[in-house]
């Protein structure tokens, strides 16, 4: 028995030695995914502060709910509270691993639910520097991975991996992600546009651990290097395992989301 485990140890270390950067990148992504599984459902309040190159600010407030879906992308419902003219507008999305996402928008003035095109992945979310794809669920199969190196971010040890989208209509050719070795969550992401030049950098801070397992940030800052605009996204009131179900994520619940 002892011999066997030694053999396994030797083999696996030999295997680790032979691991390609692609395999190591994928391994990190799978581990990050595994550590975040089982949260069932979550909700949070978000405040977005948009800042243009002149420093003028405008504020958006919204609440979001997420339902974890095993074997596919998560379901999400976002309700807008501010600015006042979009209050009551709500957005429902069923994300899928590689297929196009299903998205519906509820317009309260007309009481109209509109199924919308999901080709807008690269489009700005509420006029901010965040694109829809930056905020949607990150399933392992949506990207291909390449381990680059280890490098600390503000003294926190991290893996640096290159991530390329496998889905259609991404606004990025690739991104470079610094993943905390402790939390297996991104600390920083550099996004490269379709012309392969550096477009944006997101820095993520204020991670707290919930239910002894799930790390969630307090702040994400997205800086656009080309337009000099910046969006700060503050999170509050994280909740998990509230007993949400499919019933809370359909067109009927979208219509009455408040």
């Amino acid at each position: 028995m002892k011999k066997l485990s030694i053999l396994i140890l030797i083999l696996s270390s030999a295997f680790a030695y032979a691991q390609t950067p692609e395999e190591k990148g994928l391994e990190i992504a799978i581990e990050a995914d595994k550590r975040d599984q089982g949260f069932a459902d979550s909700s949070s309040k978000m405040t977005m502060t948009l800042k243009n190159a002149n420093g003028d600010e405008s504020i958006r407030k919204m609440r979001s709910k997420t339902l974890e879906v095993q074997g596919d992308g998560d379901k999400g419902l976002t309700i807008f509270d501010q600015p006042a003219d979009v209050k009551g507008t709500a957005f429902l999305s069923f994300t899928h691993v590689l297929d196009a996402d299903d998205q519906w928008l509820y317009l309260p003035a007309l009481k109209r639910v509109k199924r919308i095109s999901s080709k807008n992945k690269s489009g700005p979310f509420m006029g901010s520097e965040f694109a829809f794809e930056d905020l949607s669920s990150r399933e392992v199969e949506k990207f291909s991975y390449l381990y680059l190196k280890d490098e600390a971010v503000d003294g926190e040890d991290a893996f640096v991996i290159e991530v390329r989208p496998n889905y259609k209509y991404s606004g990025y050719t690739r991104s470079v992600v610094w993943i905390s070795k402790e939390k297996y969550q991104p600390l920083k992401i550099d996004y490269y546009d379709r012309k392969k030049s550096l477009l944006k950098t997101m820095t993520v801070s204020g991670y707290q651990q919930y239910l002894g397992q799930y790390w969630r940030p307090d702040v994400m800052v997205m800086a656009n290097h080309q337009t000099k605009k910046e969006t700060r996204l503050d999170f509050a009131d994280y909740k998990f395992k509230m007993g949400l179900s499919e019933r809370d994520f359909n067109k009927s619940s979208l219509k009455r989301a408040r």
């Binding site: 196009a100 299903d102 199924r115 095109s117 999901s118 080709k119 259609k168």
Partner: peptide, 8 residues
């Protein structure tokens, strides 16, 4: 309504 990517 049929929604096929950019076509509605």
């Amino acid at each position: 309504q049929a929604t096929f990517d950019e076509w509605l």
